[in-house]
Design a protein around this nucleic acid. Sequence first.
DNA 1: TTGTAGGCGTTATCAG
DNA 2: CTGATAACGCCTACAA
Lengths: 350, 350
Amino acid sequence: MAITIKDVAKAAKVSPSTVSRVISDSNHISEKTKKKVREVMEELGYHINLNARGLVQQSTKTLGIVLKYSENVAWKWVNPFVSEVLQGIGSHCHEHGYSIMITTGNTEEEIYADTVKMVQGKQVDGIIVLYAKEGDRVVPFLLEAEIPFAVIGKPVDRINEVMYVDNDNVQAAKDATEFLLSKHHQKIGFIGDNPTFQVIQDRVDGYFKALEWKGFPRDEGYVKFIRDPEDEGAVLDEFLKMKNPPTALIISSPLQGVGILKSMQENHLHVPEDMSLIVFNKTLITDLSIPKLTAVDTQTYQLGYEASRGVVELINNPDTFKRSVIIPTKIELGESHRSLKSAKPEFVKK
Amino acid sequence: MAITIKDVAKAAKVSPSTVSRVISDSNHISEKTKKKVREVMEELGYHINLNARGLVQQSTKTLGIVLKYSENVAWKWVNPFVSEVLQGIGSHCHEHGYSIMITTGNTEEEIYADTVKMVQGKQVDGIIVLYAKEGDRVVPFLLEAEIPFAVIGKPVDRINEVMYVDNDNVQAAKDATEFLLSKHHQKIGFIGDNPTFQVIQDRVDGYFKALEWKGFPRDEGYVKFIRDPEDEGAVLDEFLKMKNPPTALIISSPLQGVGILKSMQENHLHVPEDMSLIVFNKTLITDLSIPKLTAVDTQTYQLGYEASRGVVELINNPDTFKRSVIIPTKIELGESHRSLKSAKPEFVKK
DNA sequence: TTGTAGGCGTTATCAG
DNA sequence: CTGATAACGCCTACAA
């Protein structure tokens, strides 16, 4: 049994409450006794029991993180995302004395159960959900439980009741498209995965917006979706067989980016000479690709940091307006794109 | 204020202790009252307060994870490692009803402070340290605190006092070398980073062991270390300029593997036609490389799982022998190696 | 099988 | 400025 506040009190010949006051550095207490008590604490090797404090204060100063349910292939690219987001959350939490508890489950059901346990068990003061998924039970539960929380991503249901942190995907795709247009590309293809995800919809929107702004007619033929992983080859073929094949592609996932790169190579085509690529989500995959992929940086660290900030604010003042935050994206230049129609093919500096 | 055990007791017309017994599913209690109490709990929406339970039981059923201090470049490749290890730990923890708390700090000092807080604050029952570093203060602290813990990696100090989970790097390098030998390679190079790390030393050992077993003389000229990142080009050059350049390379980090791949390409050389590569640590980087790199899989998930198992065992029975676990590695075949068919160069005679 | 009472280590309220 | 005293929500002898 460890040293308690009472032991210290006894040794310092004061009452437990005085020791408690010293711990919280109350200013209703004389410097003299403060010093004395501190000395005794040092001497006895006293350390506060956060559990006990949590019980009486009804607060654990801990944030719960709901990880994304990871299935087979998909989780791979999520990997770096998780670490970076965690870093961002961690930074903020550390600054504000919060601890972090994460879900342990592997399946959707398990993760839900973990969340319920953390919340109902009063293990955490707030929650950050690392994904947004239609029909997911976690967000409704959190609303029901009335616990402060934030979602990273754009919630589909009851969006105006939840605080979220996300990128502006419409704008990001618009930026990417305009970037390619500025390099004199005119035929630009778009590749996405599951079009039922809001992210993808938004990106397609942004893509068309940029094109239409420049006066290009909307042509759905340049937008393709890859359902099955490793199916990039087929889609690339479709593009190449068009009467006016694109000279550049916007690809909405780093994994698919690498897939296209591979398929290009198999067709004895070169990037960026034969095709410019710009990929969504700068990750270590895109950085280490050969050539390094030009990518849209979604600033994952910032996403985490802001989410944490939001939740902590909500904890400190539950009536805070649930303002949601949009983290700007930026284009990270790689070597997978080139400029068309310049006197000489001009490569962008690194 | 939420529903407590007392509320349930009152509503069910039993005493709080009875309710408590129902919670712990004690068998000293009639099925009838059990059912009744459970109904009331359901009706009232009762949920246990784990904080309170933790206080009285002196145990939180939570494991603390000490993350690796991540500096500039190095952390990138650590990234996937963290997520995978966490998955492994999570799986085991979930099975045994443990929660997970992770450090939030970014610097070595902060992480140390986080660890102290978790342990002294009685927030966790055990600790898993995700790295082994010479001179680090965390392990000595944990020993001092007498809390159950395990280290992933091979601790340098006081190794026989701590439980650790690691791969057998000597064996792994031996396997990799033998693999290449079986493909008829005779000149095999080895590339490592900082040779002061034990891992690297072990791998060099294994490399030489395999060669010497086959009767090849020890030739330090085929072992090179890359200090500065992005310096792979120079080292590759050195190899290529040898009188008997290697036909295969064993590379001790995935990052360096990609670097070599890039340098090969810049020299208009092909993998595996001109050089076979086998890389340490299968990660998503090696999987997504073009060509996919043949890699030594260190089974990160298993490392995490076993570490968790060890700590939980230690918690349940503190007198358990601190057996350490060696997780076997295995070679994941990629497309970066080939078999040298011709029995061209004979054994080297010296 | 069930109830009573005391305590886990802190903080908070109220006196003094 | 400091000290009793009562919670916080649960568990666990010890009784009944």
